[in-house]
Design a protein around this nucleic acid. Structure first.
Lengths: 226, 226
DNA sequence: TGATTGTTCTTCGTATACACTTTGTCCGGA
DNA sequence: TCCGGACAAAGTGTATACGAAGAACAATCA
């Protein structure tokens, strides 16, 4: 039992509950489970090939992270990111990513900057190849890398969680805001390299504003909260 | 069975896991379980008078919230807030509470302001009575109220979680930063009432700086991370 | 002294049972 | 036809038991 899932996630020795949580997040973000969809424990247990206990534990955490809503005695449903909360989310993200950019600028080593530049290069390449999936992935990696460079675990973990929700919103609308976003990324990395905190913050804010606008557009014509 | 806990938390019909989570948080914040202390599932189950399942689910959420650390196959220990992470925490809090203050200033109704003023009055009173526990409680309520007024659920839930950690740090050091903090609170509420977002942000930042400094002092001479 | 081997404690996952809610269906009566 | 209540089904919430595997620690032996 549970072979399907183990195979899927590799031979790492993570607790099943963590594997289930990761798989659940992915499934929700990828739209395999749609907003409003009911997630019964038995069904998830079957889908992932595990028993109810790990599923329950994963569901509690998924609830804390805002991916599902649990109604007592009624079970879990996939959360519905409404356009109202999208704005709220970006308002928080702006502050947090700006802080991350500042800290990264103040603390980045030469090696850190080099790794960011490498991501930028790969991104440019993938963009030329029109490999949008890869571009989105690199986009993610870049943001996460900046958070890591900021060296603030609280900031990192909170912003990471928010970022997952951003990805979710974009995936649901099936939009890939790729091309213009790389110009902003270059600005951001330049600013971080310069060591100028103020400039890095400004660059992050510019980037966020654009991303926020894109998210709104995406939400308009995309999914509807049931 | 489970009567002790039910009695303690009232006759509400919350799932046991939520009651356990609340009790666990409280126990950790109050210092009943000290940083580094090992929390075996059996022990918690016995302490709270429930079976292991609700305990496990509560532990996962407590981990996500940063109150405990779970080492695979080794179980949970109470997290140790080091002075390093205290600084990191306040850096995040500063941004978030500043945003909350701005939003509150922009959105507060007359009734909202009145409720803040009422809390301020009660706080002044309690301070005169030297009722420090009550003052700390009102302090909490005020901050949470401002978050609520900000009307941003993401902000509210994240900041609330951070705030619990702040309380934890102060409780561990047994300090009650009461007297001078109320002057800052009055500034903050005045600013919110004025509807001036910039001013509210500044007031929040001033308050946070002072609180941060106090937290550091507290951490110095207080508990030690084992 | 130092490495190795047991032993024990505990977590992790599975399975099962059962009470209690919620939900849905069906049926009879207005 | 429509309403309302009895009844059944589904699913959660909780408890319990059990086996497997890992970690810690002590005891044993070279």
């Amino acid at each position: 039992m549970a072979e399907d899932l183990r195979d899927k996630l590799g031979t790492q020795h993570l607790p099943l509950r963590d594997q289930v949580l990761a798989a659940l997040r992915t499934a929700i973000i990828d739209g395999d489970y749609l907003p409003g969809e009911r997630l019964t424990e038995d069904r998830l247990a079957e889908d992932f090939g595990v028993s109810r206990n790990p599923v329950r534990e994963a569901l509690r955490v998924a609830e804390a992270e805002g991916f599902v809503v649990i109604l007592p005695r009624r079970g879990a449903v996939v959360a519905s990111p409404s356009s109202g909360t999208i704005g709220d989310m970006f308002a928080v993200r702006e502050r947090l990513e700006a802080l991350a950019a500042r800290l990264a600028a103040e603390r980045a080593t030469a090696a850190d900057v080099a790794s960011l530049r490498a991501l930028l290069d790969q991104g440019r390449e993938a963009t030329q190849r029109q490999d949008l999936a890869r571009v989105a992935e690199l986009n993610s990696t870049l943001h996460l890398r900046i958070l890591q460079i900021s060296g603030n675990p609280w900031l990192s973990s909170i912003a990471k969680s928010l970022y997952l929700h951003v990805q979710w919103i974009f995936r649901l609308g099936a939009a890939e805001r790729a091309p213009h976003s790389w110009a902003e990324h270059i600005q951001l990395v330049d600013a971080i390299e310069s060591g100028d905190g103020d400039r890095a913050e400004r660059a992050a804010l510019d980037h966020l504003d654009a991303a926020s606008a894109a998210a709104y557009e995406n939400a308009e014509g995309g999914y509807a909260a049931r």
